[in-house]
Design a protein around this nucleic acid. Structure first.
Lengths: 325, 325
DNA sequence: CGAGCTTATGCTCAGAGCTAGTATAAATGC
DNA sequence: GCATTTATACTAGCTCTGAGCATAAGCTCG
């Protein structure tokens, strides 16, 4: 790669999707954006002196939001040309590249910090929440997507587009795949239904974004979609769900957290059987009657499971029939 | 993240693990390194003018090796402090960050190019190939790892180390997990059994690396391990295995390719049943008798499968008993 | 106090999918 | 023509999973 072209002058950003689940609401940590309507993820330049990218991220997020991070994993590196190109100090750079991370923390008290706030991530991606049935606006969005699929001249292209809509949005006979968050976002973006799609082209969205959702700064909604998809996949084969739990919890709380992340309802008895038979949890001995009804046993995560099972995770799968709650 | 510290001056590299399988040998594309003994992956600076990181990678690899890339996916971004810090032109940078990619190509003719060569990836990670039984040097390496586990004062640490060795290297009762390539490499690195571990500290390896393996430049062996692990995982739920196949192939050739990637033997009849019942392939109508024995049907990939199945892949799992070939 | 609510928890049936093995078919080479 | 090699069909038995039924044990309200 020593041929034509100069090495690009790169501004390396670190961006974090910090996730917590509180009261069955999956939340991402946001910072105050320039204007009130568009939110942004904690983000900043990678600073000299940090031994690794990850330590740089931890320090940066804590400085910016006051939130210390526990579990952290790298998500993806974004470097497309349509990213905004900042001036870093006196240095003019030619490209902004952002390394995005996923971070998980336990439930947070609702005393919001000054510079940062936890927000329901489904406000940015409302079509991802199927816990209470079909999300509102879904039918309208599907109609717009179908119109988009029709809006190309070649019959072959039309067929491909229709198949893509059907597959990513899980119309029969395909099933809803909770992990295809990024594919769905990108389809909406391509179809011109995402506000930032027009913004990236220097235009404003004609009409309203469908499904109606909060806007985010730059490509942060894409990063959020990447994070949700990764997390939904990962809870199925690694015990990361417990990073989001308090030290002791009931099985229903655990199920509600899994449902909050994956956006679908789960079968209660099977969920318990799975979690217990895999050895993911153990009893603390205590019970709680905070839940109303029969008191529930309080459980804790059993760390030894990672030494026993090849893929210890909460293998959630949505119930096929109507929501059994 | 607007607090202390200057934004780091970053040299952004792109690095590719280009994979092909030829004659049942999984191969990675290497470039001539400074000295003959240590090989390197195609790598170079991200140059201004490329619209995306991926187009920059494609152009760079093709310029450096003559190999055009088909399937490409981003792997991971490496930015640790112990990476070598190059001088880019006249600009002194404080950090080298490398975005690594996995690329797949069909089988290659063995006419090697001048600047690049295909090499069996198991020469760098020999403990990953279990197709012909326990790899040579494995017992010795396990002994050294056990010695390393013993070599710490705290009893708790010793237990943790032993468990880790047992888990990542699949000693009974844990099973060998073909996807844990990176974990195994990092364990060997930590235990001081990898040459580059000492090199990174400015020392030379005392004694010989165990298991004996070819050395690679910088952190390229870690990148290769990351690529192998990702590919082994991905063939199970996405039809990427077919990126490595010629347009028409027999089911045994497909199985041999899957075995080359995953490093384990598969049960022949079950492999065929799986591949066929999933609708991953269709008959071309032709047969070949190149294989000796009864002529085999030539198959081709059936792209429509991605529209039908949520996770269409070759769900390989190693046979539990002795190698059935 | 007991009816009726809520939630927790135990259990079972039926079907799908997977492991591993047996059996058979159809070429080639000597 | 026979041994060898590879391809391909079929099946017994097991495990896992989806779905539902049934029961337990607290609460609140009358």
């Amino acid at each position: 790669m020593h041929l034509a072209g100069q090495p690009a002058e790169v501004a390396l950003e670190l961006t974090a999707v910090v996730v917590a689940v509180t009261d069955d609401v999956p939340q991402a940590l946001m910072v105050a954006a320039v204007d009130d309507r568009r939110h942004g993820l904690p983000s900043g330049p990678f600073e000299a002196g940090h031994r690794t990218l990850e330590t740089g991220l931890r320090a940066g997020v804590e400085a910016q939001t006051g939130q210390a991070l526990g579990y952290v994993e790298q998500l993806y590196t974004f470097g497309d040309h349509n990213r905004s190109v900042p001036q870093v100090g006196t240095r003019q750079v030619s490209r902004a590249v952002s390394v995005a991370y996923l971070a998980l923390t336990g439930p947070v008290d609702q005393e919001e910090k000054a510079a940062a706030a936890w927000r329901d991530w489904y406000r940015y991606l409302p079509w991802e929440d199927w816990r209470d049935g079909t999300p509102s606006g879904h039918a309208a969005a599907l109609a717009r997507l179908t119109a988009w699929a029709e809006g190309t001249s070649s019959a072959a292209d039309r067929a491909v587009r229709h198949e893509r809509v059907r597959l990513t949005f899980g119309e029969a006979p395909a099933a809803w795949d909770d992990e295809r968050v990024l594919e769905r976002y990108e389809l909406l973006y391509e179809a011109g239904l995402a506000a930032e799609c027009w913004h990236d082209q220097g235009q404003t969205l004609p009409g309203e974004a469908l499904p109606p959702s909060l806007a985010m700064v730059a490509d942060h909604r894409r990063i959020l979609a990447t994070a949700i998809g990764r997390l939904r996949a990962k809870i199925k084969y690694r015990p990361v769900l417990f990073e989001l739990m308090p030290p002791a919890f009931t099985l229903l709380q655990l199920q509600r957290t899994a449902e909050a992340i994956s956006g679908v309802r789960l079968h209660k008895q099977n969920f318990r059987r799975l979690v217990e038979s895999q050895g993911l949890v153990e009893e603390t001995g205590a019970v709680t009657s905070d839940t109303g009804g029969r008191p529930a046993k309080l459980m804790r995560f059993r760390p030894a499971v990672v030494l026993e099972r090849p893929a210890p995770g909460v293998r959630v799968r949505a119930t096929r029939r109507a929501s059994p709650i």
